[in-house]
Design a protein around this nucleic acid. Structure first.
Lengths: 210, 210
DNA sequence: TTATATACCAAGCGCTTGCTTGGTCAACCG
DNA sequence: CGGTTGACCAAGCAAGCGCTTGGTATATAA
């Protein structure tokens, strides 16, 4: 037998992962049974364990895939720019586009919302992955913002902005009126605006101090 | 027998709800068994069903409680202000403070992150609740922002800002250095800043058009 | 041709789950 | 006092869960 669902030459393991990501996003990891998944792929439930040792392994793989896909897109977008400011804008834009893109959306939703279902060891691994990314992004912020931002302030603004973006997974509707590019543009502008908080308040504070 | 955990006169049903909210936040609804919950309260698992008909009912109750608590605090904060701008600021500040407050945090986390575990009918009910709130908040935004903001733009900025706040439930650590008040102040400023996107870009667009 | 490996199915095992049942005991009420 | 009620326990049931087992069909390689 060759392939039921996708006649192309895409490995079964890959098909399972994609389907798993979709189901996990729709119903949550815990509410998706191995029978659901097997059925969606066109297998018997037991046959899944020919490709993965445990259901948990599938979850971890889906999450890692999400991280890899998103961080690659962002890294590429940043690398294409030559000034700190342009890199920051590219980061914001590309991150939202990556998050919500059809290729990435399912994986990222699982990564961000089914974190608690990972066993401690894998949770630590995925968490490490995540902080690495966050540090990379804070570096881009640091590079663009004025020097008098403290580390704590940088962290706060990054949590604010990336929180806003991650949350978009909850409400974004691909069949809406606005295109993904328009959305990314507007989010980028709001994000840049949020990064400019201190440009005025800080001046006021300086005045107060003198 | 009177009361094991809390000697005060707080109804057992209330104790169960509080404990459930805490456990659901920590482990997720699906991964929390009725035995876990009963044990944490000091009961046998079957005894829970003397107070609630199903596990689902507990979840729904926890979520409604979260919505009620948060929206009450925000409503009070808004009512205390007299100008549109002050009301907007009060809304941002009070929402973050409500979200992260010890009394509310568990409930809200469950509300925002275990949505998929609700059966369709209850999901619709809670969803209705949520959109009512959102509309109320958009009205406050509308009142404060300049008239040339479209409905779509208002919706976008509200999704951006409230997304950023909701996400704080994921990373906020009550034992951190910054107080909740400081955090709320800084978030409010970033939120206000994000609302001011158009103040400059729009002018540019206007110039382009003429 | 025989041998080996891969991808799968059919069946089901053992365990955990939400929930039920039947009964106990203290508190309250007429 | 006797009777009712509300809160609980001890035990366990049926269903669903992740996963295992033993076997089959096909493809490749010797």
């Amino acid at each position: 037998m060759v392939e039921a669902e996708t006649p192309e030459l895409v490995p079964q393991r890959e098909v399972i992962l994609r389907t798993a990501a979709r189901l996990f996003r729709e119903k949550g990891y815990e509410r998706t049974t191995v029978r659901d998944l097997a059925n969606a792929v066109g297998l018997q439930s037991g046959s899944l364990f020919h490709h993965f040792a445990t259901k948990t392994e599938i979850l971890a793989e889906v999450m890692k895939r999400g991280l890899d896909l998103a961080s690659e897109q962002v890294a590429d977008a940043i690398a294409a720019e030559s000034t700190p400011d342009a890199r920051l804008k590219a980061m914001f834009r590309s991150y939202l586009k990556a998050l919500l893109s059809p290729e990435c959306r399912d994986y990222m939703t699982v990564l961000l919302y089914d974190f608690r279902s990972l066993p401690p060891d894998l949770a630590r691994e995925v968490h490490g992955y995540r902080t690495t990314q966050e540090n990379r992004w804070r570096a881009v912020l640091r590079e663009s913002l004025s020097d008098d931002w403290s580390d704590a302030e940088i962290r706060l603004v990054s949590q604010f902005v990336f929180g806003a973006m991650c949350w978009s997974l909850q409400w974004y509707n691909p069949s809406g009126t606005a295109t993904l590019d328009e959305l990314a543009e507007q989010f980028m502008q709001m994000a840049m605006s949020a990064c400019r908080v201190n440009d005025c308040t800080r001046e006021e504070a300086a005045k107060d101090r003198t």
